[in-house]
Amino acid sequence: MENFLQQLINGLTLGSIYGLIAIGYTMVFGIIGMVNFAHGDVFMVSTFIALIIFLALTTLFSIPSIYIALFLVMVAAMILTSVWSWAIERLAYRPLRGSFRLAPLISAIGMSIFLMNFVQVTQGPRNKPMPPILEHVFYLYGQPGAANAVTISSRQIIIMAATAILLTIFWYVVQKTALGRAQRAVEQDRKMAALLGVNVNRTVSITFIIGAMLASVAGTLYLLQYGVVRFDDGFIPGVKAFTAAVLGGIGSIPGAVLGGLLIGLIEVLWAAYVSSDYKNAAAFSILIIVLIFMPSGLLGRPEVEKV
């Protein structure tokens, strides 16, 4: 029971990260109907940016407070990752918008390969282990050192809190502002929205930027929690986050968060109680089962075949 509680906490931490990445998939799919295959790699790039900025701040400028450093890292990662995502959309996807359906998908796969190898070439192929920070642990149950202790680390608290705060801000932007309205209009009917004066290109760009910002937060938090990153760390979390988006109902933003939390929980529990060798297989199996048996996901709208 205590172990289960512990796994629950770990699962929610991981799930928060998946949820943040999943929003990027779900929004892009909603607005231009493409699976942005490179999104997982954008997440990976953001993790590297965060690592580099963190090292720069602590070693080159020796910032005293770790919290200030983390905050600066997050802001910098958000900005710089947005530039990446914006540039990718501008160069690799926009010229293909509205053309042959497979072209953007292939272009995105190419972009994913490019990003992965770009980071490999520039940063080297080895694991980058970050020195552990914020190691303080709160005991929710049991004594330090006891086998049945249930703990939550300050990192985990930061991850969940940051996720909750950012999602609230983001939710407000999408629901209440003119930008959100434009997004929903483009999602419904791109041509009509353009005729009514919505700047489609800008709306799509901003969607990519928002997706990248949330992914970069996920990247920073991922680095904080796991402390290690490698050039090919984008693919598997990317597919899992996409699974989360599908599970929640693609196109639905609350669905993406819910799906992320569920996938995180399932993965952690599967690894703990079933088989850690097959923990990735669990995510892929869920993807298959959900797509086959409930393609509209938990919170998505069902699609009726038009004749």
């Binding site: 042959f100 272009s107 490019f114 190898n117």
Partner: peptide
Amino acid sequence: NQYRMLIFGLAMVVMMVWKPR
């Protein structure tokens, strides 16, 4: 050799943009 897959990925993007069909 390092640049092989880098160029491969880039070529995929460029060729799609150049000839989507």
